[in-house]
C-alpha cells in the first residue's frame, strides 16, 4: 500500500506565501480532510501533490507497500486527482471512453477495463459512448472519479469534489468515494470548505488559514470541540437552523 508524506511544503507566488510549511501524511484506508476558505492555499497543496505546480520548498515522499520510495516516473501510477468542477474537467469534444482509455493505456492497462471502471462508480457500461454534455453533473463527477482510478492509483486527491454539484446528489458522490476508499484501501485527501461533510467523511482534519495549518487532529474532536479561534469562527458561521428553532429544547 502506498503512503504519501508531505514535509514542510511551501509555495510562494510573487512574494505571497500561498502555502507555508505544511506537513501531513496520507495513509492507506484513511481520509484526511483539508478544510479552509478560498484563498487559504488548500487547492495549491492539491496541485503540488498532483505535480501540476512545483513547490518552492519542501518534499513530497511516496512510499510503496514494500517500503521503497516510488520512482519519479511511476508517481502518476500512484497519485491521481479529482477536480472540483465536473463541467470543466471533462473535455467536451471526447467521449467518456476516451477519458478512461487514455489513463488506462498510459499506465499499461487494457481498454477492456472500461466497463469495469464504470461499474465501480455505479454507471451503466453504455455510458462509455456518451459525451460530457449528455451527462448530468453527478454523472460527470463519477466519470472523473473513474478516471482517477484508471491508472490503479492508491492515493486520491479530491479537490472540492462535490461543491459544484446540486445538493441532493452530493451525498451520493461522497458515499461513492467513501465506499471506494474502504473497498480499495485508498489514501484520500478530501479538500473542502464544508465542515459538516469534512467531519462525516474523514478520519482526520487539517484546518488551513492563510497558507498555514492552524489546527489538526481527529475530525470528531477538531470539529465538535474546536480549539483554534479560526476553526471556532468557521464552525459558528455555518448556517444552523437548529439554533433558531430548537433553542434550549431537546436535541
Amino acid at each position: 500500500m502506498t503512503t504519501l508524506e508531505v514535509r514542510n511544503l511551501s509555495k510562494t507566488f510573487h512574494k505571497l506565501r500561498a502555502v507555508d510549511n505544511v506537513s501531513f501524511t496520507l495513509t492507506p484506508g484513511r481520509t484526511v480532510a483539508l478544510v479552509g476558505e478560498s484563498g487559504s492555499g488548500k487547492s495549491t497543496v492539491a496541485r503540488m501533490i498532483a505535480r501540476l505546480v512545483r513547490p518552492t520548498s519542501g518534499e513530497i515522499l511516496l512510499t510503496s507497500s514494500d517500503g521503497e520510495p516510488v520512482p519519479r516516473k511511476a508517481y502518476r501510477d500512484h497519485v491521481q486527482m479529482i477536480f472540483q468542477d465536473p463541467f470543466a474537467s471533462l473535455n467536451p469534444f471526447h467521449t467518456v471512453e476516451h477519458h478512461l482509455v487514455r489513463p488506462l493505456r498510459l499506465h499499461g492497462r487494457s481498454r477492456a477495463e472500461v466497463p469495469h471502471l464504470l461499474e465501480r462508480v455505479s454507471l451503466p457500461p453504455d455510458f462509455a459512448h456518451r459525451r460530457p454534455h449528455e451527462l448530468s453533473g453527478g454523472q460527470r463527477q463519477r466519470v472523473a472519479i473513474a478516471r482517477a482510478l484508471a491508472p490503479g492509483a492508491k492515493v486520491i486527491i479530491a479537490d472540492e469534489p462535490v461543491s459544484m454539484l446540486d445538493v441532493s446528489i452530493r451525498l451520493g458522490v461522497l458515499k461513492l468515494l467513501a465506499r471506494l476508499q474502504r473497498e480499495e484501501n485508498l489514501a484520500v485527501l478530501y479538500i473542502t470548505h464544508d465542515l459538516a461533510t469534512a467531519r462525516h467523511f474523514s478520519d482526520e482534519v487539517l484546518v488551513m488559514h492563510r497558507g498555514r495549518i492552524v489546527e489538526h487532529g481527529p475530525s470528531d474532536e477538531v470539529l465538535t470541540r474546536p480549539e483554534a479561534p479560526y476553526t471556532r469562527q468557521l464552525a459558528a458561521a455555518a448556517p444552523d437552523p437548529d439554533a433558531r428553532f430548537r433553542q434550549g429544547g431537546q436535541p
Binding site: 496541485r47 498532483a50 502518476r76 474537467s89 471533462l90 469534444f93 471526447h94 487514455r102 498510459l106 491508472p151
Partner: peptide, 25 residues
C-alpha cells in the same frame, strides 16, 4: 481548463495534450 490539467495528471505528453485535448476544441 481542468481537463487539460487532468490529462497532465494522468501522464499525457505535451504534444498529445495539444493535439488531442486542445486542438479539437
Amino acid at each position: 481548463r481542468d481537463y487539460v490539467a487532468a490529462a497532465r495528471v494522468s501522464g499525457e505528453k505535451t504534444w498529445r495534450v495539444i493535439c488531442v485535448e486542445i486542438l479539437p476544441n
